[in-house]
């Protein structure tokens, strides 16, 4: 393990400490996002969902994931990017502190292995509604990959 010093913008040690990381990437409202691949339990096609009345709009419902109940969180709604498509979406299932969460995304991307060298902390100009959940940015060829911090998402949910 080496620390990377050529990373002036990085105020986030957890990510900058490790040289290479793998990210599971996906698209939400046309933008590319990624989650540490270790945090992703599985990715599934749409499953039948039970609506939770009275819950905030970003709680899309409950999913039966082989006998376990997962709470579906619509990332579009959470980020304020409109409503998730009712049928065309995928579940990115993560285990957060014993609770299963399914993040509803538009489309699955590749698993990318990235160097910390191209990592930067989230620019200040990003909208607060999304920045809230971001760990930082990877500058990859032809695109910018926003890394989500699912702990922050969980924090927000539990508020």
């Amino acid at each position: 393990m080496e620390t990377v010093e050529t990373n002036p913008g990085s105020a986030k040690p957890p990510l900058s400490l490790v040289k290479r990381r793998q990210y599971s990437t996906f698209f939400v409202a046309g933008r590319l996002y990624g989650i540490d691949v270790m945090r992703v339990q599985e990715i599934t096609p749409p499953l039948s969902m039970t609506v939770v009345p009275l819950a905030p709009s970003y709680i899309k419902g409950l999913i039966n994931l082989r006998g376990q109940i997962a709470t579906a969180v619509g990332l579009r709604e959470l980020f304020g990017l409109g409503d998730s498509d009712a049928t065309k979406y995928m579940n990115v299932v993560c285990n957060l502190g014993g609770n299963l969460f399914s993040l509803l995304i538009d489309q699955v991307g590749d698993v990318m292995e990235l160097e910390d060298g191209v990592f930067e902390s989230t620019p200040e100009t990003i909208a607060e509604s999304v920045k809230l959940y971001m760990a930082g940015i990877y500058k990859i060829q032809g695109a910018l990959l926003s890394i989500l911090d699912i702990e922050k998402i969980a924090e927000k949910l539990n508020k």
Binding site: V52, L54, I59, L62, Q68, I69, T71, L157, N158, K159
Partner: peptide
């Protein structure tokens, strides 16, 4: 009875979920 996450429980109307 399956537990639901705490923030759903805090809505007050649900005590859990079941399959």
């Amino acid at each position: 009875v399956k537990p639901i996450c705490s923030f759903l429980k805090s809505l007050g109307t649900y005590s859990g979920a079941t399959i």
